[in-house]
């Protein structure tokens, strides 16, 4: 579920950081810039892994800071499609089951990817798998918030969340609710779903 991404960046080290070692200062600046951010089509950045290349630093007229081109590798959260992950149910809604991994919350299992047949209970606010016991009767299996769930990643969607230009001023409210990185999951296979469903 974690990968390394190699990136190149010109890092600006302000003069107040000149007392630090260059490596440390750069690592600090890169982490400040990227940690806990989603990079489009790369994934959710976690932390700097290592610096692979440092080029000469240079100074730009009128700026006391030094600028260094640096190549580095960053730990990124990006599960591959078809990967099996474990998470906790955050909530259930008509749109499906929302799952959290603690550090990443934008995972949803749409109703069509739940075990079949499932229904949504409005009063309990939970999805229920109507498990067929084999003798004609049904057994309701609830998917309550907080339960540990195993699911398969089936899709991912990245969205550009840059602020809209002034001409689109009316639509700026929408851009604030945009989710930069969304994962879709499924549990419609034997073995997937709440862990308690499958240990006999």
């Amino acid at each position: 579920m974690f990968i390394l991404a190699e990136m190149k960046h010109v890092t600006r080290i302000p003069p107040e950081l000149f007392h630090l070692k260059l490596n440390e200062a750069i690592a600090g600046e890169l982490n400040k810039k990227l940690a806990n951010k989603v990079v489009l089509n790369v994934g959710l950045c976690i932390a700097l892994y290592d610096i692979t290349n440092l080029q000469e630093s240079f100074i730009i007229p009128g700026d006391g800071a030094s600028h260094t081109q640096v190549t580095f590798r960053y730990i990124v959260f990006k599960p591959f499609i078809e990967e099996i992950l474990m998470g906790k149910i955050r909530s259930c809604s008509q749109e499906g089951v929302h799952i959290s991994l603690g550090f990443f919350d934008d995972i949803i299992i749409p109703p069509t990817a739940l075990q079949h047949p499932s229904r949504f209970d409005e009063t309990e606010q939970a999805w229920i798998w109507e498990y067929d016991t084999g003798d004609g009767s049904k057994h309701d299996l609830f998917m309550d918030a907080g339960e540990t769930i195993r699911f398969r990643v089936t899709g991912e969607i990245f969205q550009e969340t840059c602020p809209a230009g002034p001409s689109l001023a009316e639509t700026t409210e929408n851009s604030e609710n945009k989710i930069p990185y969304m994962l879709y999951g499924s549990i419609n296979e034997p073995g997937l779903g709440l862990l308690s469903w499958w240990d006999n």
């Binding site: 990968i3 991404a5 190699e6 990136m7 190149k8 590798r73 990006k78």
Partner: peptide, 11 residues
């Protein structure tokens, strides 16, 4: 910032 390789290795 430039992405050289979005997936160098899996951890």
């Amino acid at each position: 910032m430039e992405i050289v390789n979005a997936n160098v290795a899996t951890l």
